[in-house]
């Protein structure tokens, strides 16, 4: 093969075409370039770590490495889960917990959105609302538990309010930030187009703040689960947290594990649902072709 150009300056075809190199007089085959970036994704890669942990756990349980009161075998957890499901304890406690979380999330999302819009759209609203929410944000919600129990007792009200407060702040912060971060150029455009204030809010402000709202929603759901676990362990007669709390007294690590599993399933499901909704609603962000 004759080389017409210095090797370093030749851009030869990619290796998959290298079979034709012999006919391409004057070109040298270029050795495959070292790939420094991350390689192609491993299929189901994220599950690999989980599978390894499960395998280690199963082997350990089988060989008697762990005290069953502290860590039950995976198969014990499955059968305990089945028993709890059959006798209704798991179902009842899950429903109670979901109801608390549901009411708290719904109320928190509603209030957080309303407050963010108030503070984002009017200076008076901002002056009134923002300071209060920032003050609330600097106090951990869980730190309010003693005060709220003192005021409201240990009934449903206090549990739902703790969840609501956490959700409210999670929704408020990113939504408010998105609202005040609306592109000034689109504001000018709206002024030139002489649109009404209502039309401006509907066409520019709200769509522009939706990405922030969805971010807040995802944070809010995660936060709601956290609050739920805490309020149900502090003072409750039922709910998943209470079920796990009792299991701790009786050394039933399998029941605790079942509870954790249910939390994980609902947490993941909620997050996936929000992501799907987000992708649908914000489809304009990714579409490059119609």
């Amino acid at each position: 093969m004759t080389t017409l150009l210095p090797r370093s300056r030749v851009r030869a075809p990619a290796p998959k075409h290298s079979g034709t190199d012999d006919q391409r007089q004057g070109f040298v085959a270029r050795p495959a370039r070292k790939q420094l970036g991350r390689r192609r994704e491993v299929p189901f890669g994220r599950l690999l770590g989980v599978a390894l942990l499960l395998a280690f756990w199963s082997i350990g349980a089988h060989l008697g490495w762990f005290d069953p009161r502290k860590l039950s075998a995976p198969w014990t957890i499955v059968s305990t889960g089945w028993d709890l499901l059959v006798n209704g304890a798991l179902f009842d406690n899950t429903v109670v917990s979901l109801r608390r979380a549901g009411i708290g999330i719904a109320a928190g999302v509603f209030l957080g959105t309303v407050l963010a819009v108030l503070a984002g759209l009017s200076r008076l609203g901002e002056a009134t609302v923002d300071g209060l929410v920032q003050l609330k944000r600097s106090i951990p919600t869980l730190g309010l538990i003693p005060l709220l129990i003192l005021w409201l007792g240990i009934g449903e009200g206090f549990k739902v309010i703790i969840i609501t407060l956490g959700v409210l702040v999670s929704i408020y912060v990113p939504t408010h930030a998105a609202l005040i971060g609306i592109d000034r150029r689109l504001v000018e455009l709206s002024e030139i187009q002489d649109v009404s204030r209502v039309s401006f809010i509907r066409n520019v402000v709200l769509p522009g703040s939706l990405p922030g709202w969805f971010l807040g929603l995802r944070l809010a759901v995660t936060g709601a689960w956290l609050s739920l676990i805490v309020v149900e362990s502090v003072n409750a007669t039922d709910g998943l947290g209470k079920m796990m709390q009792n299991a701790q007294y009786y050394g039933q690590s399998d029941v605790i594990m079942v509870g954790l599993l249910v939390y994980a399933v609902f947490g993941l499901t909620a997050d996936s649902l929000i992501r799907i909704a987000e992708r649908k609603v914000l489809s304009w962000r990714q579409s490059l072709v119609d």
Binding site: G120, L121, S122, R123, L124, G125, E126, L179, I180, I182, R184, V187, S190, E191, D194, V195, S196, R197, F200, I201
Partner: peptide, 12 residues
Amino acid sequence: MASILGRLTSRF
């Protein structure tokens, strides 16, 4: 933001 919105209606 309020002033931005205010401008929209106070143009004239």
